[in-house]
Write a protein that binds this DNA or RNA. Sequence first.
DNA 1: AGAATTACTTGCAAATCGCAAGTAATCTGA
DNA 2: TCAGATTACTTGCGATTTGCAAGTAATTCT
Lengths: 164, 164
Amino acid sequence: MAGKAAAKQRSGCPLSVSLDVFGDRWSLLIVRDLMVRGYRTFREFLHSGEGIATNVLADRLKKLEAAGIITPELDEKDARKINYRLTEKGIDLAPALLEIFVWAARYEETGASCEIVTQMSEHREAVLAETRRRWRERDLTPLIPGVTGEKLRIMKGKGGLLKT
Amino acid sequence: MAGKAAAKQRSGCPLSVSLDVFGDRWSLLIVRDLMVRGYRTFREFLHSGEGIATNVLADRLKKLEAAGIITPELDEKDARKINYRLTEKGIDLAPALLEIFVWAARYEETGASCEIVTQMSEHREAVLAETRRRWRERDLTPLIPGVTGEKLRIMKGKGGLLKT
DNA sequence: AGAATTACTTGCAAATCGCAAGTAATCTGA
DNA sequence: TCAGATTACTTGCGATTTGCAAGTAATTCT
């Protein structure tokens, strides 16, 4: 019931298969919210500033779950809440998201500062490692602090990257 | 007329902006055809094995052109033909496509051989350099020869990569 | 106990998609 | 030369998907 509609006739190309999974305007934004913003709940995704409708959000959460990209976890303190979490398959979308991010920041008018993009390109591996560390340790602090305005700064210490 | 419908209310996040441009099931497949298969015409895109409809293909070509990702060029020998070509902005989607490709090949059931994926991961920079070289020199030989079956082989010589 | 909050579902009009058919310009072969 | 094929589309139409508003059920707060 919650499965994906089997697309009609497509090649087995990995890109094609990928687009069957997240080839729409919303799916990757949910993944982004989970990956870099520390969002976990329906409500947070809904108010992430993109204007997704509730029915579409519910549908995408179902599909992402069916695709094995996210898993729902019950909140221990509040039985109403469902905390979604990226699976390993989900967090492994990080390199793809990073490349898309860098591309758009370079060619489109976006709200991203040149500084952040430069850091992302130059410290690609470190950013990806930090992204994965946050996921592993369930660290919910945003990867890029304060989506509006604040600056990205590389911490010189061990491991610490992209903290405000 | 050929512009994009301005999406309602979205954040200026680069990912969000990207999805406004190619967040659908077809756009990136056209980019792929241009980038790695050496396809250039309406007809080739139509028969690339994905099953896109003619009206949708026409629409996506318009939008990709409006977004500055592709440009149409008149064929010198056949006035009926339009040869589409990636712009620099378009070819710079290569890293993103590569990451998506590798992700899907790893996690989804695709027609890609493990060998090709391994090569792509391990020789990422070389693959990207070769992709760009092909674009620059208008080399139309497929990056991955014979989409079905044939093997990928790394050439040991100078520059030559991913030839059959 | 009443009011919020959370995560949805339902209903409906509008936009988009998939499919089939049609068109205009150009080329090709007898 | 000219009928038929080819190329790049457009048009029409029913089906699906989207966007928006409203409603619902299960908690939790006060």
